[in-house]
Each structure stands twice: as C-alpha cells, then as structure tokens.
Design a protein around this nucleic acid. Structure first.
Lengths: 333, 333
DNA sequence: ATGAAAGCGCTAACAT
DNA sequence: ATGTTAGCGCTTTCAT
C-alpha cells in the first residue's frame, strides 16, 4: 500500500502563491524572507497542519539531526541515567535520539546495527564496546562518529567514554577486605563486563592473600529483586561461611537486603553488601546501601558533546576518556 | 561540513561490474538475481562494508519501517514493560522503534511531535492521550497511524489501547474499605492521570459514606523511594489518623514500606499499602506489596499490531480497546 | 535476468 | 527577496 503524502512544499507554495523554495526558506531561515511572505506561508502551514518531510530534506542536505543509541536492555536501570542525560543534551542541541535494543546477544547486535546505519544517523552511541569484527568494519565504512561507553578498551572504533570494570572488582575486593570481611561472594549476572569485574576481584583477593577461591553465584539477566533473594539463599546454602556479597546491581543488592532481614541476618555485622550503580533508592534503603557509583549523567553528556562536535565539523581533542568510579560508603558494608 | 557518503549502490555496482539496479535487487530481492551475480555483489558488499542508505530508499518507496513512541519519561519504570514488548513486537515484524521523551510538558510535546512527524514514521504510539489541538491536527494531517495508550477517551485521534484511571481509583478505594480501612490517604505524583485516579477514589469514598475528605500528599515526578519515605512522614504528621495509603507507583510504595518498618508501624495491621504498576519487585517485598496490575506487555503488543496492520494496508477491526486492570492482593493491604 | 530512465520531496547553488 | 535548476541515493516502472 502506498502511503499518501498529505502535503508537500509545492502544495503549500501553490496555496500561498509563492515558490517551493520560498516555503522552504520560510520554514528554515525565516529571516531571509520578507515579513509579508512569511505571514502568508505561515498561515497556510497552520491551516494545513503541514510538517515538511525531513527524510527528503535530510537526503538533500545530509543532516539527519539524529543520534542512535544501542542498549543491551531497555529495562536495565543502570543505563537510564546515561540515556536520560544523553537524550537531554542532544535535545538541547536540536538532535533526536533513537534507541535500539541489542539484547546482550551478538548476532542481534549486527542486525540492529545494520538497521541503524541504514538511517545514516549523525552519530552512534554504544553501551559497551563493539566486539564483532563485521560490526566494526561496517561502522568504520559508514564513516559515522561512534562513541563506545561503559567500558574501556585500548582499541576503540572511534571515541570512548568509559571506565575499568577490572578496577571496580579490585577496588571493591580491597574495600571489603579493609572492612574485615574475609569470605566474600560474587552475586552477578553473567555478562562480559560482569566477568571482568569478577576477574579483578579475584586478582585482588590473591594479592591480599585470601587463600580460598572466591565463590560466584550467577543469576540470569536482567537482574531483579527476586533473583537477589533467591541468589542469597543459594549462596548461603553452598557457602555458609560467606560474610559479604558484591552484587552486580543495586536491585540485586536490595533483594539480598530484604532476604537477609527476613532471615534475621544482621547487615553489615553478619553480612556486608555492596551494590553497583548507586541508583536513587540505594541511599534511602534501611540500612543504606554501599554501592559503586558511576557518573552516568556525565557519560551521556560527554557522548552527546562528542557526537555533536563531530557532526558539526569540530574535532574532538580528547576522544578517549576514563571517567572512573567511586565507592559510596554507606551502612551496608 | 558535508558528510562524505562512503559508498553508494553505484560504487558497488561499478566494482561488481553490474548496474545499480542489480545491486539493489541483490540486496532486497536476492531471488530475482542470478546466482553468479548475487555472489559477485555480495562479495563486494562484504569487502566494502557497504550498508545502503535507507533514507534514500525510504523516500522513494515511502516505507520507513520505523515506529515512534512518545513517553513522558525514560526513567519511569511503569512504561518499561510496554516499551519492551512494543520494541519486541515491532522488531519481529522488521520495524524499528524510535523513542522520544516528552517530559510531562505540553509545549515540549508539540516540538517533539514535529520532530517525529518530519521523519514520516509508519506509526506513532503515544503514552497518554494527545490533548493539544495543534498536535491533534498535525497528526491527522500527516495521515500517520496513531495509537494512544495508558488512558481512555471517548475521542481518540485514531486508535487506542488503554484503561480507566477513574475506575482504578474507585476500585482501590472500595478494596481498602472492604479490608476495613477507614482513613485512606492518597500519596501521588501530580500528573493528569493521577488526578483522575484521585477523583475516582474520592467519588467512591462518598458512595461508601466515608464522611471525611480524603487527604492527599503530593510528591514530585518522577516518583522515587526517597519521596515515598518522606511522603509517609509528612502524611502522618498532618494526618495521624491515616490507616492506609494508595501510592501512585510501586517505588513510592516501597519507600512507604521501608519508612513504616523503620518506625515500627506494622503493615498491613496498622497501615495498609497499595501500589500501582505491579513491577517485578512488588511480589518479592516483605511484606509482599498489593498493587494494581496493568498489562503493559499486552498494551505494547496490541499497539504494535495495530500500527503494523495499518502500515501494511490492513484495516484494524476494533481500534479502541479497554484492557482493564486488576488488583493483585498480597500481604501489604 | 538485467538495465535505463524517471522521480520520491526537499534544499544547495546559482540566477535574477 | 525570490525563483529556477539540479540532484541527494535509492527504487519503481518499463524496456530489453
């Protein structure tokens, strides 16, 4: 079925008694049109409810005013801060954000990437780094500015705003050790970044002389409060000596907190709990949750800045940024 | 700055020794191209990392394969289920979802709508109903299929998948009354749909003969665990007789639960709590949260079906659907 | 099975 | 200040 294009600039031009070009100017550069003409055109536009076809305009002027973001999941609360600030920063600069969900699956990611590149956005923001060689090549071939985020790699495709997951693991391990915990357990989803945090954690455990292997309790993604509760139950069943948990999300940690309370386990005395993400609710829990804070707002803002600078022909002087992280010490560990 | 278009079908055609048309066919209708030619073209495409410009193709064929969704906020957990299922249902049918954030503000909504209509998507899914007369006219003029969701109105622009907020208010009021609560309080964000739930609640309160005016504690949007805690504190300070709360989100309700526990208030004995949204965590709280369940998955799926049917020229036989809601009775009230 | 011509709706570039 | 011409990259249509 052919979709009827309600009105075109030519229709509006005819109705207003001017040329199509004048309508285009009245809409995009009103200062270059006489007051009378402007009034006439605007009146017709108002009456018809005409909105120009940006697809056609963008094809001609090769300005899409569109940025695409690729997220593993729309449900994941961790990225929301990044997406919100990305959206806002782009919006302020007149760009629109399009969101694609890759779903933690590499093959889906290639398909999604194809759909995105077809639309020739002014930039692409990836959550995580692009591993598929095919994906990297297409991105490069398309010549679209790319910002990889939420991770670090020595070989980014283009630009990068991230932090080291290994270092988070190391830091949390050291933190728990310094608090006196000697039997930490890792409660985590099984994605690649989580695995690197766990690697870092284990490396530091060795350095600190914790002889026992650090046990892991894996939960399916996305992490939920429910899996936090059941995760703690299973963890304690298999490793009753456990005295601290590093959870791969705050939701998971909340589940642990609730299950601990239900079982009469004192936090932080009998069980230390550390979350990841420092979501709004972390500070307001009882006991307040110690969590790893990542400045998602800053990631989103910088990514937007990078893309827009590039899209508008400005060079980005420092295109690779490690924004770090911070352990927010509260009552739970 | 002019963005260099890396490759076009003509480049690929030249390299493969065929015409542009053949490249186009090899990509879109491979069965209509000879095996040898297909192989040649595919090899060049692979080597170059070529991805066709869908903007140009869409302009010619007027098939965008794009659906836009307008959300008040990306952070709001209530809509996530709808967005997820919308995204998935569209994806399965080869469409992509673009998300725009309107931000509970009517004037921003008009600007956003303009940006969306310019891209000539195959359909637009609105969260909530469109009130602005200007917005309605543009939507109608553009001839793009529209689905309004999460609300009911006798005069939808086009199609509708929603439920009655008044009726939720009435039902929750009746539910709390039947549970023996006589001094309910409304803890709520101050948006329009919340107001209609409160109206419904009050109407039912009168019907049931609750003589006292039902007090309201308003909190800023978006609702958070923190505002749930402080909301309960203020509510009890001004209305110490309160014995039940209807919260406008589950996050708010979780905050109330935590604050109640901190103060040693027994739930549900001394304080009944009802949430809205029935998010994953509601069932896993301690005590488990009674909440109003809205089938967001079904809303998203139906909206996708409606849009795709229309985009592909099929009529939608029942374009206005009230999907209702359900009170999930758990331990908190 | 393949190619040539035309044109989708808009705007850059060049008149006037 | 306004109009004319051409063409963005693709696909529809019509030949061959």
């Amino acid at each position: 079925m052919k979709k009827p294009q309600a009105f075109t600039v030519h229709d509006i031009a005819r109705m207003a008694g001017v040329s199509a070009m004048t309508v285009s100017r009245a809409l995009n550069n009103p200062e270059r049109v006489s007051a009378g003409t402007l009034l006439k055109v605007r009146e017709v536009v108002r009456q018809t409810g005409f909105v120009p076809n940006g697809i056609a305009g963008g094809l001609r002027s090769s300005r899409a005013k569109l940025v695409a973001a690729v997220l593993p999941t729309l449900t994941g609360a961790v990225f929301q801060e990044t997406v919100r600030s990305l959206n806002q920063a782009l919006d302020e600069r007149g760009y629109q954000l399009m969101i694609g969900q890759s779903g933690y699956d590499a093959s889906r990611e290639d398909v999604l990437l194809d759909a995105i590149i077809r639309r020739r956005p002014d930039g692409i923001v990836l959550t995580g780094i692009m591993h598929s060689a095919e994906g990297r090549r297409r991105l490069l071939a398309a010549g679209i500015p790319v910002v990889e985020t939420w991770d670090l790699t020595p070989t980014p495709i283009d630009m990068l705003v991230g932090f080291s997951h290994e270092r988070i693991g190391e830091t949390v391990c050291h933190f728990l050790y310094s608090r006196g915990y000697r039997h930490p357990l890792l409660l985590s989803a099984d994605d690649e970044r989580a695995r690197r945090r766990m690697d870092g954690f284990r490396r530091m455990a060795q350095v600190l002389g914790l002889t026992a292997e650090i046990p892991t309790q894996l939960v399916p993604a996305p992490t939920t409060l429910g899996s936090g509760r059941s995760g703690l139950i299973e963890a304690l069943a298999t490793h009753p000596e456990t005295d601290a948990l590093f959870c791969s999300s705050d939701m998971l940690a909340l589940g642990v907190l609730i299950e601990a309370q239900t079982r009469g386990l004192a936090v932080p005395e009998q069980l230390g709990v550390v979350g990841l993400g420092d979501l709004e609710f972390a500070a307001n829990l009882q006991p307040a949750l110690t969590s790893v804070r990542i400045d998602g707002t800053r990631i989103g803002r910088m990514a937007a800045q990078f893309i827009v600078d590039r899209a508008e022909g400005r060079a980005v002087s420092e295109p690779i940024v490690d924004i770090g992280f911070e352990i927010i010490e509260r009552a739970s560990a």
